[in-house]
Design a protein around this nucleic acid. Structure first.
Lengths: 136, 136
DNA sequence: TCTAATCGTAACTATTACTAGTACGATATT
DNA sequence: AATATCGTACTAGTAATAGTTACGATTAGA
C-alpha cells in the first residue's frame, strides 16, 4: 500500500489558506499539491464534517477556513479522516480458539493500542499556528 | 495493503514448537497456520538470521528453536523482519522547499517517532513464555 | 548409490486497502 | 443561458504481504 499523506498535505493547505483570507478553490489547492481537484474535494470534504472548513458551489465558491489556525490540531485533522488503525501490523486469526494464538494477539493488541495512544497524544499537541514561519 | 500478521503468527508457532522438543518441519507449521510451507520458510528464514531458530535439510530435518521462550521478545521477532515504519501514515514531499510543508513534516515525524518508540518499548516487554497457558 | 524428505529460492498470482484520476451531474452566480 | 465550482460514482494505479508452483540443493538411510 502506498502511505497515507493526507494529514501532512491538508495541514499544509490550511496554513496556506490562512494567508489568503481563509479561502481557496479545489483547483487552486490541487495546483499547490500537484494533484487533482477531486483528490482535494475528498480530503477537504472530511474536514467539513468536523466544521473546520465549509464549501460553496458555483462561481466565487470554494473552500473557507472556519476556525483560526490555533484552534485546529493535528489530532482534529487525523480524526476527521475517520481512521482505522494507523499501523501496518495486525493480529492473526488463523485459529481463533487456540489459547496461544489468543494470548499472542492480546499481547500485540496491547502494544498497538499503547502506541496509538501515544501517537494521538503527540498529535493533540500540534496546532496549525505552530507551522507558521517565524516573523523575524 | 493487507496487514502484516507475521509477528503474531510466528510467535504462535514458536510457542507450539516449544511443546514438541523445539522442532517442527515447514509442512507441519504450514498446517498449523493454514498456509503453505513456502510462506513458513520465508518467515522462519528471517528469524534464523537472528539466531532464534536454525534449520536443517534432508530427512529428519526442519526447524529448531535455539533459545528458550523467555529469551525471545516480540521486539526481537519484529526486528528480525527488518521492518520499515510500522505506520500507514507518512509525511508528504510535494514541495520540499516550502517552509510550511517542512514544518508540517517535522511535526508529524516527531509524533511518528515518539509513537514508534512507545511501540518498541511495549514489544520489548513481551517474552514468548508469557504466552504459555497457565498450568492450574 | 538410489530414494525420499526437507529446506532454499525464484517467479508468478491473489488479496487488500489504499490513493489518484476520469467523467459527469448538481448547484449557484451573473 | 453560460460558466464556475463542488459532489460523487466509477475505474485505474500502487505497494505490501500472502499464497502457489516449480525446481534445485542437501542429507539420512535403506
Amino acid at each position: 500500500m502506498s502511505k497515507d499523506t493526507r494529514l501532512a498535505r491538508v495541514a499544509h493547505v490550511l496554513v496556506h489558506m490562512s494567508f489568503n483570507e481563509g479561502t481557496a478553490t479545489s483547483e487552486t489547492i490541487a495546483a499547490m499539491l500537484d494533484t487533482n481537484p477531486v483528490v482535494v474535494r475528498r480530503i477537504m470534504g472530511a474536514l467539513r464534517e468536523g466544521g473546520y472548513v465549509s464549501s460553496e458551489r458555483g462561481p466565487n465558491g470554494g473552500w473557507r477556513l472556519e476556525r483560526p489556525l490555533r484552534e485546529i490540531t493535528f489530532l482534529n485533522i487525523y480524526r476527521a479522516f475517520d481512521p482505522g488503525s494507523p499501523f501496518t501490523i495486525a493480529t492473526s486469526d488463523d485459529h481463533p480458539k487456540c489459547v496461544v494464538e489468543r494470548a499472542a494477539n492480546r499481547a500485540l493488541s496491547l502494544a498497538l493500542s499503547e502506541a496509538t495512544a501515544r501517537f494521538e497524544q503527540s498529535l493533540a499537541k500540534i496546532t496549525l499556528d505552530q507551522l507558521l514561519p517565524r516573523k523575524t
